[in-house]
Each structure stands twice: as structure tokens, then as C-alpha cells.
Amino acid sequence: MTLDTSTEVTSAPPSGSRGARARSREWAERISRAVPSIGLIVLLALLWAAAALFVPEFANGSNLVNILRQSADLVIAALGVMFVLLIGGIDLSIGSVFGFSSVVLATLVFGGTPVPLAILIVLAVAAVAGAVSGALTHFGRIPAFITTLGMYYILFAFAQMISNGLALKLPPGTMLQGLSRGTVFGIPNVVLVAAGTAVVAWMVLNRTPYGRDVVSVGLNRQASRLSGLPVSRVAVGVFMISAVLAAVSAILLTARVQSGEPALGGLTGTFEVITAAVVGGTSLFGGRGTVLGVVVGAIIIRTIGNCITLLDISSLLYQTVMGVLILIALIVEAVRLRQKGGVE
């Protein structure tokens, strides 16, 4: 054994000189991390600029507000699924959580339950559904796409059974109507709800121990467990967050159309939500995703939808465009990981 004291491979500045240089390194690190989100914002800006040039009626104040209003429900649901994606899972059940929550809410309100109580019940039921998916996935060791696909069909069936497959009109004049149509200082309520959700999601992810747990578990489940992090709580909890936020989103949609719709969402709905999260830079390999990115991703998706409507192209093209988007996002992600040697 050679005994010459070796030099460390990564040489570092002598410990005295921490200060200006270390700070600048820190900022460089922070900025390099923000690059994907900044890139997305630039992309959105370019999209809006292009749309303003080429799409008639696009650059019109009320249309822009409209885009934000339409983005609200997608932002909320996509933030939910981001938590599942962060731990390397997937939630295919979202689409039928929409229809199911909508039907349950309408039935309760129709039956005379006070709206706040009805909302609470809907959220609680969604949380239970999420917990079941999470528990089957984590403790049953069943792949997440199977449990949540199964849950998709189960909730879909429940929604059909409760509603007999028919839309249920809400009684007029409930506070749900105000929720959907009202504004505060000219800002639509739904936009405020979405913004509030985003702020809370950001706080949870970046400023709470639970958020740290989620990221750590997503990056390395084994090391997290051996460090004493509550892996089960994370693995089940993220599915509950996903289902509850999907339910919040469904409540907003129900308020907008003023009826309980069993067909709200569907697999297309699931698809849209996951696309928003992925376009927003959430890694499908786990561990990486930002609230800002997901918010921008959802707005991008809705902007494209808005343009398709304004250009009077068949709205049916929408889903294909989303499919292409998700694949592009995937390829970008895979290539980036490959460069880092991260996959496998």
C-alpha cells in the first residue's frame, strides 16, 4: 500500500476563501437549476407572440384572461399528478376522479347538502380513492399504472352508477355559481384558486419536510429509507394529493358547467393532465419537477387549445397535438438523462 498522501480529485479553494467566490458559485448553481423553468416561460412567451401575430382575436385582453381562466383547473390537477411523478409513479385514474367527483358533488348539492360540506365530502372521498391506489401500489407492489388504471375503471363505474350515466343539473343560485363566475378585483375566482393551490404546492414542495421527503424518495428510495425518511407515508400520500387536487379541479369544472357530469375527464382528461405536468418539465423517471414549470406547462397546453378553437380547426386535433407534445417532452428528457448517464 502506498502511503503518499494523495490529493483529492476535486480540488477546492482553501477553506479561508469562502465568500465572494462561494456565493457566486451558489448563484450559478441556483440559476442553472432555474434554466428549465425559464426556458418554459420563454417558450410560452414565444407561443403567445406567435399566436398574437397569426391567430386573429388572440391578442385581446378578454381572450388572455379567458386562457388563464381555462388553465385554472388543469394547473391544479397537474400539480397533483406532479407529486406522483416525482416519486417515479403515474396516476392514470385522474380522468375518472373528475367525473366521479363531479357526480358526487352534484348529487350531494342536489340532495340539499350545504355546498361547503359537500365539497369536503368530495375531497375526503377522493383522498380515500387515492389512498387505496397508493397502498396497493406501495404495499401490494403492483405497478402504479395497473392500480390506477383499475381505479380509473372502478371510479368510472361508480360515477355511471350514481348518475345513471346522465348529467345532473345543479340547482341555481348555490355558491358554486358564484365560485365559478365571480371575480376579485377583476381577477376570476378560479384563477385565484389555482394561484393559491400553486403557492401552497410550492410551499409544500420547497419549504416543508414532507416535500423534501418526496423529492428524496423520488431520487433514491433505498437511501431515503435507510436515512429514516417515512417512505410509506410519501408513497401513499402522493396518490392522495393527486386525487384530492383532481377533485378540486373537478369541483371548479362542475361549477363552471353547473352540472354533475359523469363523463367529465375520461382517459383524455388523464392524458391532458399528465401532458401538462410533463411539458412542464416533470421527469417521468422521478425526482425532478417544479411548481412553476407545471403551471407554465398547463398554460401552454390551454393556449394551444385556445388557438385551435380560434383558428376554427377541429377541436378534435387537440388530443393528437398533446400526444405529440408528450412524446417530444419525453424525448428531450431521455436525451438529457442519457447525456448525464442517468438512466438505468
Binding site: 403515474i90 392514470l92 405497478p143 399504472f145 382517459l267 383524455t268 392524458f271 399528465i274 401532458t275 417521468l284 423517471f285 377541429s314 378534435l316 386535433l317 387537440y318 388530443q319 393528437t320 397535438v321 398533446m322 400526444g323 405529440v324 408528450i326 412524446l327 419525453l330 424525448i331 431521455a334 436525451v335 442519457r338 438512466v343 438505468e344
Partner: peptide, 25 residues
Amino acid sequence: LRVPSFVATFGTLGITAGAALFIAD
């Protein structure tokens, strides 16, 4: 690209289902 199969095929599900809707109007 080593994309997880459920994600890759979920993406093509979206494209094909969407294209079907579009074609059939």
C-alpha cells in the same frame, strides 16, 4: 430512448386516439 413503456405507449395512445377523433370528426 429507454422511456418506460407505460409512458411511451400512453403517449402514442393519445396520438392515435386523438387522430381517430380528428379523422372521424
